[in-house]
Design a protein around this nucleic acid. Structure first.
Lengths: 192, 192
DNA sequence: GCAAATTAATGATTTATTCAAG
DNA sequence: CTTGAATAAATCATTAATTTGC
């Protein structure tokens, strides 16, 4: 099995599609949100998330949408595969003990080993990204962009609550507790 | 008690999701384009198409996108079903004359009965043509951006060149000849 | 150590399926 | 039933991890 991708291609006018490569911080945020149970954010939420992520690098709504879509899909596939494996093993060794297909998307275990401190911070990294927008769910929340100021008030919020301190994370360094829906979080990485 | 993900996300107030009902003229345009071979228009083309359709009623990019998606899907399914049927029949009767699965998308009968006059107009080219796109917005302007600006001259131009004459249509009143890629067409309905 | 060559992850597209309005 | 809307599954394509030979 090999890719068999030779330098032979339409070497004429290829726009060279490049794709978004999320920063570690962005991944952490996304994982956290996903892990907190919001696996399929509606459009307005997606916009909010995107605005959060933008602090760490250019990103578009579409990227966020795609991320969640892929995350859902692959999470489920892994789950299925794992279950099939278990089923096969069970069938091979003994019998029954079939666990009915629960939800499929299981949030967090907690192994709390890695540490990622979270608190607010203001730094304007990202620029904006080109963004078209994929087909998100219902149009309910399409009333104006509840744009809380300009983003810097994130500070305010977190200051209000004081830095939330450390939150429980799993083996991926991902939160196992849900983030507050209306809040915004920033994270401070430890090393990288 | 995270509650995980409640089965219901939509707020209590059901937004009464109403769906787009394309006008006959719009359907004709869409069918024509699809029938002409452009079965999966890239984003910029979709925008153009949407602008065209907007003359006959409110419509968004997402609607156009969905339409083509569904059209492709259902066209192919019908084709497959038909083929399966044929295969089954062939197998049942005698030795099969298997026709390899050609492309599923290739209509083009011609019965030329209905009439729809179409004006051709040399439109803005500029098709970046290459890339496809990330699916379009869901609840974006069903009325929002009135882009009539570059739109009106369509009429002007078509008036200039005079009606381009009738084009061959099939039993659905749909063109059987391909529309020119860079062009824009208008149709004059006969009654409705 | 370092790049070219491979492989593994994963962002982006397309297709198939499902749900619900009309 | 037809068909617009939404989602999940499958697929493609590019980027990061690696392996490998020097």
């Amino acid at each position: 099995m090999e890719g068999g991708l030779s330098p032979e291609r339409h070497a004429a006018a290829e726009p060279v599609r490049s794709r978004w490569t999320p920063k570690p911080e962005q991944i952490l945020i996304l994982e956290s949100i996903f892990n907190s149970g919001m696996v399929n954010p509606p459009k307005d939420e997606t916009v909010r998330i995107r605005k959060l992520l933008e602090r760490f690098g250019a990103v578009g709504d579409a990227n966020v949408f795609y991320w969640f879509q892929n995350r859902r899909s692959r999470s489920r596939r892994r789950q299925r595969q794992l279950q099939a494996q278990a089923a096969a093993a069970a069938a091979a060794s003994s019998s029954s003990s079939g666990s009915p297909p629960t939800s499929g998307l299981a949030p967090g275990h907690a192994t709390a080993s890695s540490t990622a401190g979270m608190f607010a911070h203001g730094a304007t990294y990202g620029s904006s990204a080109s963004a078209s927008w994929p087909p998100p769910p219902s149009c309910e929340g399409m009333m104006g962009d509840l744009d809380y100021g300009g983003g810097d008030d994130l500070f305010a919020i977190s200051r209000q609550m004081g830095y939330a301190g450390l939150l429980p994370v799993n083996e991926y360094g991902v939160l196992t507790q849900s983030l507050q829906m209306g809040e915004s979080y920033f994270l401070v990485t430890r090393g990288y």
